[in-house]
Nucleic acid binder design. Sequence first.
DNA 1: TACACCCCATAACGCTGTTATAACCAGGTT
DNA 2: AACCTGGTTATAACAGCGTTATGGGGTGTA
Lengths: 227, 227
Amino acid sequence: MSTRDLGPAKATRDRLVAAAIRLLEEGGPEAVQTRRVGAEIGASTMAVYTHFGGMKNLVVAVAREGFSRLARVMENVPATDDPVADMFELALAYRQYALENSQLYRVMFGLSVAGGHRLAPVDVDELMGTGRYPEGREAFALVYRGVERIIAAGDGAGGEPLTESLQLWSGAHGHVLLEFGGYFGPPEQSVHTVLVPLAEKLFAAMGHPPEAVRDSIRTVLARRGYA
Amino acid sequence: MSTRDLGPAKATRDRLVAAAIRLLEEGGPEAVQTRRVGAEIGASTMAVYTHFGGMKNLVVAVAREGFSRLARVMENVPATDDPVADMFELALAYRQYALENSQLYRVMFGLSVAGGHRLAPVDVDELMGTGRYPEGREAFALVYRGVERIIAAGDGAGGEPLTESLQLWSGAHGHVLLEFGGYFGPPEQSVHTVLVPLAEKLFAAMGHPPEAVRDSIRTVLARRGYA
DNA sequence: TACACCCCATAACGCTGTTATAACCAGGTT
DNA sequence: AACCTGGTTATAACAGCGTTATGGGGTGTA
């Protein structure tokens, strides 16, 4: 194949991924179908097979794009001289991304079957572990670096960045999943009842006085318009 | 209908639910099919429709049974004079149930499509909110009561039981989902890196000295054989 | 002009949930 | 005993799904 083929072929793949994500968010995972994804770019089912070899790899590509977009959103959170406030901004951005792209978020974490397929642990390893797709690691690295900054600015009793990051991730992940699953009842409320107090505990354990942490979080909440 | 009909009819429904759960755990959500569930009890697809009106309600019944079993597992955790240790036992039991019934757990929380259907928010409200199915509320009540006991035994600065319970639930939920999704890498490890430190922070915030909390948790870990 | 190769539309296969139809079978009525 | 009645069920069909075999249509190369 000539080098020019990489261009148009990649463009078609990107259009397929974009179409799949569009269908996913608008019609749920059951709307992601070979016929509809193909029709969305003016083609037939074969487009999915020639470019991805089947729905399975398209779903993986969708997850990669989802993590890539998440990383881009998190990168846009600026670093100030208050790393605690920065990290809570990051948590709010994470939650907002998850809520505004809840179907995509589910696919990213292997919790949704789209087109008859879901992200398998082996695909997760490609994204988060030792694999060749960097998107998931990039997103997590932003959390990790934020935690590093908090610990570095703390009193020295802040613990290990990796385990603290994983705890934060677990809490946020559980929170958003229960929230948009309807397990908390009406939404928005749960930011104050769950995310804020959880973040306070975690940030304080990274070596900062509880009152200072509370102030930093309160500032962010006010800035972002959370009553 | 005569009153005797409630017996055999209910028995058939229970057998269908049991068959669906068996297929679910053994073959994943895609193995829960009208033809297979019917064949499992020696009947045809119509059994699902006469007794549940379709796959949708069977999935709801599966989720109810899942929460009912979870509540039974959690009830078997005895109450001692150390409510902090009791609650960590509860957390370990919750995690163990989730891992040993990971497919069922996903269905319970609306994260898995079985037989073309998944638990919708309206079904969640029936289980966890204002609805007529008590199974989900029963399971959560066991967490809530455990938190109440911890706060009552604490120094009085323990916070509000409901919000503390929701934080605990979020952390545990996120932890088990990331764990059996493969996002933590090798399992077992994450009990020490995530669940234990998260529980320490949460229990301490319920009004207990960090050292006492750590001791209680260490005792439980030793008792349960976590290296 | 001729060849080679990728891309894709068409049509089919096997599978799914669902449903219309008709048979069956127990209990109550005549 | 004969007959109806309502719930349960097997059978067969339908529309839809992911997938695949086939063959036609472009484009670049010789």
